[in-house]
């Protein structure tokens, strides 16, 4: 459905909200809300999710644009990594001169 069709059906599309907190480096998903367009989504997010000084930046994405992995695929997707600890960088010997790693 396009945004206009949503409005005509009396339902506002759903948006996913991401907020960057004062200390945080990246935007974190905080929840979702309804709005007719991106501008309204940002303002609604301001009113719903930043009223207790939670953030300094807002991203909004219409939920339909998020594509998620299927929970049923979990075994095939993630289990094979279980026994491959060598993929962690902890096995490398670092030279003593190298600091802050």
């Amino acid at each position: 459905m396009t945004t206009n069709e949503h409005i005509n059906s009396g339902e506002w599309p759903l948006w996913e909200i991401f907020i960057r907190s004062r200390q945080g480096l990246d935007h974190k998903h905080v929840g979702s809300l309804h709005a007719v367009d991106a501008q309204m989504a940002i303002e609604n997010a301001r009113d719903v999710y930043t009223r207790r000084m939670e953030g300094v930046s807002i991203w909004v994405v219409e939920s339909k644009h998020i594509h998620a992995s299927n929970p049923a695929d979990a075994e095939a997707f993630y289990d094979p990594a279980n026994d491959k600890a060598y993929r962690h960088p902890t096995f490398y010997n670092l030279p003593d001169e190298l600091k802050h790693m």
Binding site: W12, L33, H34, A35, E43, N44, D47, V48, R51
Partner: peptide, 11 residues
């Protein structure tokens, strides 16, 4: 009229 605007006007 909708939850989000209820919060906006209450703010």
């Amino acid at each position: 009229p909708v939850l989000e605007q209820d919060i906006a006007i209450s703010n």
